[in-house]
Amino acid sequence: MTDYFLGVDVGATKTHALITDAEGNLLGKGTAGGGNPTMTSYELFGRVVAAATWQALAQARITMPQISAAGFGVAGYDWPSQRGLTLAALDLLELTAPCDLVNDAVLGLLANARRGWGISLVAGTGCNCWGRNQHGQMGHMTGAGNILGEYAGGSELIARALHRVAYAWTGREGPTALSDAFIAAAGAQDLEDLVAGLTINRYVLDASHAPLIFDCAAQGDAAALELLHWAGDELGVMVITVARQIGVQQAAPDVVLIGGLFKGTPSLQDLVEASVRPQMPGVTFVSMQAPPVIGAVILAMERARRPAHAIRQALLALQTQAPVTF
């Protein structure tokens, strides 16, 4: 009898499902919209996961009872108290096989860390950090952003950059190239119009404008450079904190970098590394090569007590030969 494994990566903007056999061969995949239940609802989360999963099942030409185990990485799934609601929303799948749930940030770690453990650091629209040690112990930040004092996602970077622009207008600080960049992006007439428009929501600048900060920093703007150094320090503190939680400061962990901010120039990775390496000299920074949904399949196989290391290597080898695309 062939074993089949289902992995699902549920993000804020998209959901991916993948089905493989025990050797890691890709059999079916599906995609749907965002399903973070804390941003929408658990009902919508369940429907989104079902839509992506049913596509994958149809492509694999199997039925749900044939699934041997499933793994789900869910954006917004941060606390044990959410487990019951999350599993209840998955009842729509009529899944009878064992399954496991993790925060979606963990999937990038499972798919890309060379030994299957280490730390995942997310810097995209928001920021987050999760870790897993050699014994399976998990550690994490709150994932609540500036509400609970965790900074350096795109949203926080833009907020800090707007402070600097406002300081330039009031004269609290000197001019910054960020002002002209944001005036152009917002379509404002000048700096005063921009500042006034921001106060009454006539203009809105959000995380999607974070690349402008990198552009200004690349031109040598002092305020923009200071913002990126601040972001590197904040993200570095997250890595060190989670490493301390799971006891891997001196164990040479991989740190998997996830999110669009790590693609910018100047390199945010270099700034994070400068913050982390003095306290964790053996750390290795790893870029995302395999998509997170591969980590969801690995989670499913671990739930079925398959030899994780061999499976991971097989999946990554197949990913190299024929990358999973959606």
Rank of each mutant, 00 (worst) to 15 (best):
D104A: 03
A123M: 09
V122C: 06
A70T: 09
R114A: 15
I62C: 08
F45G: 01
A89T: 04
A52H: 03
C99T: 04
A50L: 05
A70H: 00
Q66H: 10
L44E: 02
E94T: 13
A52E: 03
T63R: 14
I62H: 05
N112K: 03
R83P: 00
A50N: 01
H140S: 07
Q134Y: 13
V106S: 10
G46P: 00
L101C: 12
W54K: 02
V74L: 13
W54E: 14
D91K: 14
A50S: 09
T40Q: 07
N128G: 02
V74W: 01
G71V: 08
P80G: 08
P98G: 11
G84N: 10
H135N: 09
W79Q: 13
L110D: 07
C129Y: 05
I119R: 01
V49T: 14
P98Q: 14
G71A: 13
S41Y: 05
M64Q: 11
L121C: 03
G116Q: 06
V74S: 01
A70G: 02
L95M: 14
Y77H: 12
V106F: 11
R61P: 00
F45E: 00
R83A: 09
Q55M: 07
I62P: 02
C99S: 13
L101D: 06
W117K: 05
L93S: 12
L107T: 07
G71M: 05
T86M: 12
W79P: 00
A50I: 00
R132A: 10
V48Y: 00
A97E: 05
A123K: 04
R114C: 10
Q66E: 14
R47Q: 14
G126A: 07
W79M: 10
F45D: 00
A51P: 02
A56V: 03
N133I: 10
L87E: 15
I67P: 02
P80K: 09
W130T: 05
A97N: 03
S68G: 02
G124A: 10
N128I: 09
A75N: 11
Q137L: 11
E94M: 12
G84L: 10
A70M: 14
A58Y: 04
L57N: 08
N103F: 06
T53I: 04
V48G: 00
Q82N: 11
T86F: 12
L101I: 12
A69N: 10
T96I: 04
L90D: 01
P65F: 11
G116D: 03
S120G: 14
R61K: 14
G71Y: 09
G139T: 03
L110N: 02
W117Q: 04
M64K: 10
R114K: 15
R61V: 07
T63A: 10
A70Q: 07
G126W: 06
Y77V: 05
W117V: 06
T63I: 10
C129Q: 11
Y77S: 01
I67H: 11
M138I: 14
G73D: 05
I67F: 14
A105F: 07
G116H: 07
Q134H: 13
T40F: 12
T53S: 10
L107K: 04
Q137W: 15
R132N: 08
G136R: 11
L44T: 10
E43F: 15
A111P: 02
T40K: 06
L85T: 08
M138Q: 09
L109F: 09
P80D: 08
A75G: 15
G108F: 04
N128L: 08
Q55H: 02
A123E: 08
T86K: 09
